[in-house]
Design a protein around this nucleic acid. Structure first.
Length: 480
RNA sequence: GGCCCCGUCGUCCAGCGGCCUAGGACGCUGGCCUUUCAAGCCAGUAACGCGGGUUCGAAUCCCGUCGGGGCUACCA
């Protein structure tokens, strides 16, 4: 039988990087086995779920390079793949379980539950549901329902008992039913809880493997028990290590970003993001860090996933994005970076040509796309904006003489190319007995405004002779 | 508190009883290259949490301990 995996985010916010990593692993496993990857929307929490998040979540996954065979946005044999459209189905299952005696109605009020929980905790007992309503007869329950009492539905955990399962990353797991309370599967307002909806969907959609965050590990016996109560065969589980922030604490806004959306907007290359995420808890090869999705698909196995939690290291992501950036074909880089620039300012054909001429030099200097903005800003301005630190550092009094001399020599150039400019300027260095630093940095600051820029002569060539001279003169004037 | 998971360089991963005087990558440091910044190249830094076992032999197996994390809702 072919494998069927799913990713089922809740659209209550932007797609979290942890979820995205789960998506990557599920996708890799499905693709490795030639199986089916499904995207489902777990929106049982209708109050907090928003349509815009469904769209953003899909955008983020597509951006990462993931595709799915069934689910939201692509359809398939199981309806809309949204839990909010399936409440009737969940109620039907809950009712069936009640009829079969594997679940029961609970009439305890939230206040009562709360009081008993606090009492239990104070007495040092487990805070879970104490099973009060499980003792009621079915007849009594029917009467109370008829009398209009509201109720929730709880699963009757077999007692005593033990649930054992094999986890692809954690091996043999065993939970004594002592530690599992009769949890709610259907709320008193008739809506399903996550446990019910998720389990029913996994059964109905014939999911074979569930790879999800380790935070759900202790809920797994509940899901298995529920599955069995439905008369179905449990899926194979794989609980992935959690992702943390640099401080070892939960990944949060405080340091770095937690949403895929943020990394998209920050301009990291999606290819790098995919590669980096697949490295969190897995390794392609002890000696190989950079590889294609195809290569990852070929080697990926959930059984090889590490058990250790991983810290999301933005530094390494940055490095990797830079690696991919330099690997981009020039026209690909040009297209991607131009898109970023033209989102900020409109460019004339001439300016676009100028940028393209410098693009290869810029390409090897950026890690994330938005950096091209700073790298090229000097090129498009009417007047250079001098970076104060650069000016102070480079424009010493002697620099004025250098600029004067350069002005004369550059003005006299009949041919304006990188080569001719360089030849003239090196000659100037010789004649004036200046080192490159003293001789070239003032020109760089004068032309670009900063002591950090793309290579000087290429930059001047692209700028053009008249603009270059104009900028040198203006810089020179600042000395007075 | 209870249940569960995890513990190799600062970080991610390799290691699944001898190939380990522990390997790769990021980072960091130094050097080379160099008109700046990058890139590139070279070198260096740095780890098996601790204590007991088992074994001829342990990073690898067992126990304990300490540390980190997760769960403990009519959230997901």
């Amino acid at each position: 039988m072919s494998v069927r995996l799913r990713i089922a985010p809740s659209p209550t916010g932007l797609l979290h990087v942890g979820n995205a990593r789960s998506a990557v692993f599920n996708w890799l496993y499905a693709r490795h086995h030639g199986g089916t990857f499904i995207v489902r929307v777990d929106d049982t929490d209708t109050a907090r779920s928003e349509e815009k998040y469904v769209a953003q979540m899909m955008e983020a996954m597509r951006w990462l390079g993931l595709d799915w065979d069934e689910g939201v946005g692509v359809g398939g044999p199981h309806g809309t793949y949204r839990q909010s459209d399936r409440f009737d189905r969940y109620r039907e299952v809950a009712n069936r379980l009640v009829d079969a005696g594997s679940a029961y109605r609970c009439f305890c009020t939230p206040d009562e539950l709360d009081a008993r929980r606090q009492a239990a905790q104070a007495a040092g007992r487990a805070p879970g549901y104490d099973g009060t309503c499980r003792a009621h007869s079915v007849a009594e329950a029917e009467d109370r329902v008829a009398a209009g009492e509201s109720f929730s539905v709880r699963l009757a955990i077999p007692r005593p008992g033990v649930t054992e399962f094999f986890d692809l990353v954690r091996d043999d797991m065993r939970f004594d039913h002592e530690v599992i309370d009769d949890f709610v599967i259907l709320r008193s307002d008739g809506t399903p809880t996550y446990h019910l909806a998720s389990t029913v969907d996994d059964v109905d959609y014939e999911i074979t493997h569930v790879a999800r965050g380790e935070d759900l590990l202790s809920s797994t016996p509940r899901h298995i028990l529920l599955t069995q109560a439905m008369g179905a065969e449990p899926v194979t589980y794989a609980h992935l290590p959690l992702l943390f922030g640099p401080d070892g604490k939960k990944l949060s806004k405080r340091h770095g970003d937690t949403s895929m959306d943020a990394y998209m907007k920050a301009g990291y290359l999606p290819e790098a993001m995919f590669n980096y995420m697949s490295l969190l808890g897995w390794s392609y090869d002890p000696e190989v860090t950079i590889y294609t999705p195809e290569q990852a698909i070929e080697k990926f196995d959930l059984a090889d996933v590490s058990k250790n939690p991983a810290i999301f290291d933005v530094k390494k992501l940055e490095w990797m994005s830079g690696e991919y950036m330099r690997e981009l074909a020039l026209d690909d880089f040009a297209a991607r970076s131009l898109a970023v620039i033209e989102a900020e300012r409109s460019l004339s054909d001439e300016q676009r040509r100028q940028y393209l001429a410098l693009a290869p030099l810029i390409q090897e200097r950026v890690k994330v796309l938005p950096e091209v903005l700073e790298m090229s800003d000097w090129l498009f301005r009417d007047e250079v904006e001098f970076d104060e630190k650069s000016w102070d550092k480079v424009m010493k009094p002697e620099a004025a003489d250098v600029i004067d001399e350069a002005l004369v020599r550059l003005e006299g150039l009949a041919v304006w190319t990188t080569e001719s400019i360089e030849a003239a300027m090196r000659q100037m260095l010789d004649d004036l007995e200046l080192n490159p630093r003293k001789g070239f940095q003032p020109l760089r600051v004068a032309a670009t405004g900063s002591m950090i820029s793309p290579p000087l002569f290429e930059s001047l060539e692209v700028l053009g002779q008249s603009t270059t001279l104009e900028r040198l003169r203006r810089a020179r004037a600042q000395f007075e």
